[in-house]
Design a protein around this nucleic acid. Sequence first.
DNA 1: ACAATATATCCGAATATTCGGATGAGTCAA
DNA 2: TTGACTCATCCGAATATTCGGATATATTGT
Lengths: 115, 115
Amino acid sequence: METLATRFKALGDPTRLRLLALLRGGELCVCDLTAALELPQSTVSRHLALLKSAGWIRGRRGGVWTYYSLEDGPAASGADVLQGIGGMLAATPESSRDREVLEAYLKTKADGRCD
Amino acid sequence: METLATRFKALGDPTRLRLLALLRGGELCVCDLTAALELPQSTVSRHLALLKSAGWIRGRRGGVWTYYSLEDGPAASGADVLQGIGGMLAATPESSRDREVLEAYLKTKADGRCD
DNA sequence: ACAATATATCCGAATATTCGGATGAGTCAA
DNA sequence: TTGACTCATCCGAATATTCGGATATATTGT
């Protein structure tokens, strides 16, 4: 129960929902997410760590970058939940804007660097 | 998004999950829930108010009592979510114990009073 | 109107969460 | 090894949440 509460508590924050909404589109690194959300890197990293410890996402090191993606394994055990709220997430205006900012940023990033 | 976060934040507390688990069995009044959870009435009432304002449950006055039940109308819009986590809720040990305490209490309550 | 019961709200104290700048740790190329 | 870069963690200050006793409100029966 405590575990389940922790799980949902992680969803109880707009910034973290924005992150999840973006990750529904596929794997992204921290600097991508930082650019899309237009928030300090430390803030984004902290929220990602929390989502990971709550079992919603997973991170993998790829050289200098850390790529995060949705956790869909058995650990998610509430993949149905994410599936269920997926539509709600995508329907929000923040979600749309974040994705636009991300797309614009990804074009600038073609050379592989972060800024 | 803010709304959605508020929605989930309400689920991010063990006491509130215990309340939801009990209400899955049907409508109950505050004193029933207070007895089942073995917590102060003010605490239970506060959590119920929060769950209600988050759109998870609904309350109706029935004389001196206020009966709470799960919100399954369109306002719930995440009934799927509750449906999805229903199993998880029922599987916890707290949930089983709460229900036992409730059943034992309901027997004592046959006369209609609360203590 | 009054008393009894059930519920909601108020209150301060304790605890937890959040933020973002600063700093630490890890990785790679030169 | 040095420097550039990405990301994680530390830190104190601000804010939010939680608790339960006390109190207010509501409803019913007398």
